[in-house]
């Protein structure tokens, strides 16, 4: 058991932090939500009611969708785009999907390669793109969930202000949807861009996200 924890500490630590922060978001979110309801002369709601509400749903989904979009774009972008000196980038001349030999697929698969890497045909083709496909699918699903829960939350607010609810298409044309979407997208693009550039000139000793401390700034694609 101890061995399991030490060998999976990275996923477990981030899984735990995710749950803690999600609970924190729910607790602080219901307080903010109820402050607003109190100001509007409406009855407050319970934590359970809040976490099953569209208001909580859209706040969670609008962030998830942008995270999955970030990784989807980064995974695909780094196949073709490079940044000289960045530990996050391939070396110049290595762009593209590379050869079967370099990727160890088909007849170049080794004994311990995943089964679908050596299977050939659609299975190898699918497995070769599975990371991007899953990230892209999760992005589309969470963005759709963000749109639907945002629509429901928006209509709740419309009724609170004694206005008519809108259709889903009407909501997609509202500033609320695009403001929620784009404010998250821009922050993700900033974070990725910063990481690419910072990793050229800055180091974090021992982290695989950084080059080894003594590596020259011009060295590309090296991790420590």
């Amino acid at each position: 058991m101890r061995r399991f924890f030490s060998q999976n500490s990275l996923s477990l630590a981030f899984g735990g932090l995710f749950l803690l922060t999600l609970v924190g978001q729910a607790v602080s979110g219901v307080a903010a939500f109820n402050d607003q309801r109190l100001a509007d002369g409406l009855e407050q709601i319970s934590l359970l009611r809040y976490v099953t509400s569209s208001a909580f749903g859209v706040d969670v989904m609008e962030n998830w969708q942008s995270e999955y979009l970030q990784f989807f774009l980064y995974i695909l972008g780094t196949v073709w785009l490079i940044q000289l000196g960045s530990s996050e980038s391939k070396k110049p001349g290595e762009t593209g999907i590379e050869t079967d030999k370099e990727q160890k697929v088909g007849r170049y698969a080794t004994k311990d390669s995943p089964a679908w890497a050596s299977a050939g045909g659609w299975r190898t083709s699918l497995f070769s793109r599975s990371l991007g496909l899953v990230m892209g699918t999760l992005f589309l699903l969470t963005w759709t969930a963000s749109a639907i829960s945002g629509w429901a939350a928006f209509n709740d607010e419309q009724l609170m202000s004694l206005e008519d609810p809108v259709t889903l298409l009407g909501y997609l044309a509202q500033g609320d949807f695009w403001s929620r979407t784009l404010q998250n997208w821009q922050s993700e693009m900033l974070a990725v861009g910063s990481m690419v550039i910072f990793s050229v000139y800055l180091r974090q000793r021992g982290s695989p996200e950084s080059k080894p401390v003594g590596t020259p700034h011009a060295a590309t694609g090296m991790t420590g």
Binding site: L42, I45, A153, D156, Q158, L159, L162, D164, P165
Partner: peptide, 28 residues
């Protein structure tokens, strides 16, 4: 129309807005 904690009922000659409370739906 029911959306979360609020609702709207259109009558032939009026429109009512309601809110969910611990003692049921009330007209706001």
């Amino acid at each position: 129309e029911v959306w979360g904690e609020e609702a709207q009922v259109k009558l032939t000659d009026d429109t009512l807005f309601l809110t969910r409370t611990s003692s049921g739906w009330k007209v706001m």
